[in-house]
């Protein structure tokens, strides 16, 4: 099995602040200084990547993520992990997002800056090196808050030090099904690594997607954090593989039946709910892992965010009703699955 089939994406995030401007949660007034800060951030970003500016106030009514009419752009960005849910509650907040959606620089979230780079597959170090380029340019032009020993100064002291979080999104269906995950989560918690479900954490239907991140690590260097995450991800891949073999040995034909039915449902559905899609696409990916289906996994991974509820609304250019979304989703999924067949 290929590690790139289990690891969906890799993300690096930096938390940064500037001197002489109160942190966002107490930031009132200071308009001139704030504007100067934002102008510099925009000009640095423009010199490093081709991006678009989004501001929370222009995206929402009242700066709250709600079921309102005009907020689907904001929710789409949250759905796609391009901004955090917390940013939506910051009236002064916004983000500059690269056109290829790999780099996002949020401003006035919990810290003045939250920069991130997301890449497909298992490419933590590459994401780090790319983001560092933007980050160093920001350090050159802004008066970044930093103190010897403590490292980067952040609103919440748990982010002190490198101010860095590395996360990897993984597809772990077998570990989840054999029930090993709870034990594994506990083991890694002791090593400052957290594992949590993505897309419907507490619901029945889920896509078996998990986000693995480093926890606060004040004295750790960026290299140490990445090295630790890499070793955890490799270990999880190995465990996932073992679990997949164990499941196959116990009930191969039932698994095959479940996978093929899921594939059929996605190929022939005309109305496809979000939960139904998630559980079926997870089975299809598992089918590719077992060699039962010949489909391109990265293409499937790219399909998943495209049919999330708000992303569909943005594509349609208007807020869609759940039923309209389900119909649109069925069509997109059908066409994508046919297109991503491999020999």
């Amino acid at each position: 099995m290929n590690i790139q089939d289990i690891v969906v994406s890799s993300r690096i995030r930096f938390a940064r602040n500037v001197n002489n401007l109160p942190f966002p949660h107490v930031l009132k007034g200071n308009e001139a200084k704030l504007q100067e800060f934002l102008n510099t951030v925009q000009s640095v970003c423009a010199s490093k990547f081709d991006g678009d500016l989004y501001t929370v106030n222009a995206m929402t009514v009242g700066g709250e993520i709600s079921e309102g009419a005009d907020d689907y752009v904001l929710n789409m960005l949250v759905e796609n992990h391009l901004i955090s849910p917390a940013l939506g509650r910051s009236k002064l907040g916004g983000a500059i997002i690269s056109k290829d959606k790999t780099i996002s620089v949020m401003f006035n979230e919990e810290d003045h800056l939250r920069e991130q780079c997301i890449l497909e597959g298992f490419r933590l170090r590459e994401a780090y090196e790319r983001l560092l380029e933007v980050d160093m340019a920001l350090h050159d032009r802004l008066d970044i808050a930093f103190k010897k020993g403590l490292g980067h100064l952040t609103a919440c002291p748990t982010n002190l030090g490198a101010g860095m979080r590395a996360s990897v999104m993984m597809f772990l269906p077998a570990l989840d099904l054999v029930g090993d995950l709870r034990r594994i989560i506990k083991k890694y918690a002791g090593e400052d690594v957290t594992i949590r479900g993505v897309y419907g954490e507490n619901t029945e239907a889920k896509g078996f997607m998990y986000q693995i991140s480093n926890q606060a690590a004040i004295g750790r260097s960026e290299d140490m954090i990445i090295a630790k995450m890499e070793s955890v991800v490799k270990e999880l891949c190995m465990l996932e593989e073992q679990a997949r073999r164990a499941i196959w040995d116990r009930k191969g034909v039932d698994i095959e039946d479940q996978i093929m039915r899921a594939y059929g449902a996605l190929l022939f559905a005309r109305v496809l709910g979000s939960d139904e899609f998630m559980i079926n696409i997870a089975n299809v990916k598992l089918g590719v892992g077992y060699g039962l289906l010949k489909l391109d996994i990265p293409s499937i991974n790219r399909l998943i965010p495209k049919v999330l509820p708000y992303t569909l609304s943005v594509k349609a250019g208007k807020k869609l009703s759940p039923r309209e979304r389900d119909i649109m989703r069925a069509k997109i999924v059908r066409e994508a699955l046919i297109a991503c067949k491999t020999k």
Partner: peptide, 19 residues
């Protein structure tokens, strides 16, 4: 105090010396 609670290890990463 927080620094000690969080492990008390000095940052010596990529930006060491940025002060």
């Amino acid at each position: 105090e927080y620094f000690e609670e969080l492990g008390g290890q000095e940052y010596k990463g990529r930006y060491a010396g940025y002060e």
